[in-house]
Amino acid sequence: MASASSEPTVRTLVDEAPQDAVRRAVETLVADATAEDGVAPLSEQGRLDVHRDHGVTHLVAEAGGRTVGYAQLVDDAAELAVAPAARRRGVGGALLDAVLATDPAARVWAHGELPAARALATSRGLQVVRELFLLARPLPPEGDPLPQATLPDGLRARPFEPGRDEDEWLRVNAAAFAHHAEQGRMTREDLDERTAQDWFDPAGLVLVVPDDDPGTVVASHWTKVHPAGELGDEPVGEVYVVGVDPVHQGRGLGRPVTLLGLHHLAHDPRHPGLRDVVLYVDGDNAAALKVYRSLGFSTRGTDRMWARTADVAGDTMGA
């Protein structure tokens, strides 16, 4: 633990991954912060990017010979975490100042509605430029029954097939999320990294394809199950990515494609008895919010992105 008199210093690593010992320390402080706050300080992509040595600027705060904070900057988006034992000692301020010195136009995520995060952002004159809602609903039998997922004529659902569908899924994902900074830039490396995780289940990545052209993806719903302790005391399902090829948008696919994934989670043989499902959606995505709320989702939390100007266009979802 850093002593109260230790002033934090910040090391900046550009296209250079932290050394193993520092990386392990960062993983520990992220876990400790998650347990303390009830919300992870880094997104899933942020946690994966801790290991990357290209395309990421890593900022490591140290005091008393220990790693007490961490931030990362990818393009112009930043996230930061401070060890609970080192809070209220200027670590968060030092990290945020270093991020803004590196990129004055940086947009900084604050996950959850934590008063300390708001206070830090406003102390640097930052304003909210984007909101990401966490929505949730109980699955049957605790929650309301799910409507049937009825696709338009000529379309059917099938599971993702590893080794066959990667490139086609990436094509549709890039098109559906062309204006979404995080999701739309997913590469084959990113996809392979996720499909190699223990949580990945090909049956949980539901593809919608034409009856007469099953190799072409029209839309998809990728589901995920978080283990107990990650989002609560029990496993929790997630509407991970819902995307519709823009060529097929306007056909009312968002609702049935969402339902396909919800039905999978409700009857997932790998995770029987799931009680809850969550999803993230941009606060300005009225169309997606309308679909999700019509399916019984309500707001459980909010992530906010802060920057020095409010004149930043909001992103849109691809559902």
Results as ranks from 00 to 15, higher is better:
Gln45Cys: 00
Gly46Tyr: 04
Gly46Ala: 03
Arg47Ile: 09
Arg47Trp: 14
Leu48Cys: 04
Asp49Pro: 03
Val50Tyr: 15
Val50Ala: 01
Val50Glu: 02
His51Met: 03
Arg52Pro: 02
Arg52Glu: 08
Asp53Thr: 09
Asp53Lys: 01
Asp53Tyr: 13
Asp53Gln: 04
Asp53Ser: 14
Asp53His: 15
His54Ala: 15
Gly55His: 05
Val56Asn: 01
Val56Pro: 00
Thr57Tyr: 12
Thr57His: 10
Thr57Ser: 04
His58Ala: 03
His58Trp: 14
Leu59Trp: 03
Val60Phe: 09
Ala61Pro: 08
Gly65Ser: 01
Arg66Leu: 12
Thr67Lys: 01
Thr67Asp: 14
Thr67Trp: 13
Val68Pro: 13
Val68Thr: 05
Gly69Lys: 09
Tyr70Asn: 02
Tyr70Lys: 04
Ala71Val: 14
Gln72Asp: 10
Gln72Ser: 11
Leu73Met: 06
Leu73Val: 01
Leu73Ile: 00
Val74His: 00
Val74Asn: 00
Asp75Leu: 07
Asp75Trp: 04
Asp75Gly: 00
Asp76Ile: 11
Asp76Trp: 11
Ala77Arg: 12
Ala77Glu: 13
Ala78Gly: 07
Ala78Leu: 08
Ala78Val: 03
Ala78Glu: 04
Ala78His: 02
Ala78Trp: 08
Glu79Trp: 10
Glu79Gln: 14
Glu79Phe: 11
Leu80Asn: 05
Leu80Cys: 12
Leu80Tyr: 10
Val82Arg: 01
Ala83Arg: 02
Ala83Gln: 01
Ala83Asn: 06
Ala83Lys: 01
Pro84Trp: 07
Pro84Gly: 02
Pro84Lys: 03
Pro84Ala: 08
Ala86Asp: 00
Arg87Phe: 10
Arg87Asn: 09
Arg88Pro: 13
Arg89Lys: 07
Arg89Glu: 11
Gly90Trp: 05
Gly90His: 07
Gly92Leu: 08
Gly93Asp: 03
Gly93Leu: 08
Ala94Pro: 13
Leu95Lys: 07
Leu95Asn: 07
Leu95Gly: 05
Leu96Arg: 02
Leu96Glu: 00
Asp97Val: 07
Asp97Trp: 15
Ala98Lys: 11
Ala98Phe: 14
Val99Tyr: 01
Leu100Trp: 12
Ala101Pro: 13
Thr102Lys: 01
Pro104Asp: 10
Pro104Tyr: 14
Ala106Ile: 14
Ala106Met: 14
Ala106Leu: 13
Ala106Lys: 02
Arg107Gly: 11
Arg107Asp: 09
Trp109Glu: 06
Trp109Leu: 13
